[in-house]
């Protein structure tokens, strides 16, 4: 999971554009309408480099709502969009360990 922040666009399968929200660092995904959402279910899924670039370029240009924008792999299962690797799973679901205090979302 070499830092994906500087990756060139090379897509092996279905992918989304993701980032962290500027105000609180929360993980966000780019929608087909070029907005940010915290729900991966609303993310636009792309599967080739051209489509990924089209989604990524305006997302990166938005320097005020989200930062550290990059393309991340996803898995599609029964029409659900799931994170494509452990790093993305942890970004979406939080640490895999029990936190000292459990707080609501």
């Amino acid at each position: 999971m070499t830092s994906p922040l500087q990756q060139k666009i090379k897509i092996a399968g279905p992918s989304v554009v993701t980032a962290n929200r500027l105000g609180d660092g929360a993980v966000v995904y780019r929608t087909a309408r070029h907005q940010w959402t915290t729900d991966i279910a609303d993310a636009a899924v792309v599967s080739n480099a051209t489509a990924a670039t089209e989604l990524l370029t305006p997302a990166k240009a938005d320097g005020i709502n989200a930062v550290d924008v990059y393309v991340a792999p996803v898995k599609l299962e029964d029409d659900r969009i799931l994170p494509g690797n452990l790093r993305e799973q942890i970004r979406m679901r939080g640490p895999t360990i029990e936190l000292p205090y459990s707080y609501g979302a």
Partner: peptide, 21 residues
């Protein structure tokens, strides 16, 4: 910009991690 701000926040101990600052 984020690039300009990043160094300033880092000099105050603020990182952006996976889930939050």
């Amino acid at each position: 910009t984020e690039d300009e701000f990043k160094s300033l926040r880092l000099m105050n101990g603020v990182y952006l991690q996976l889930h939050a600052y």
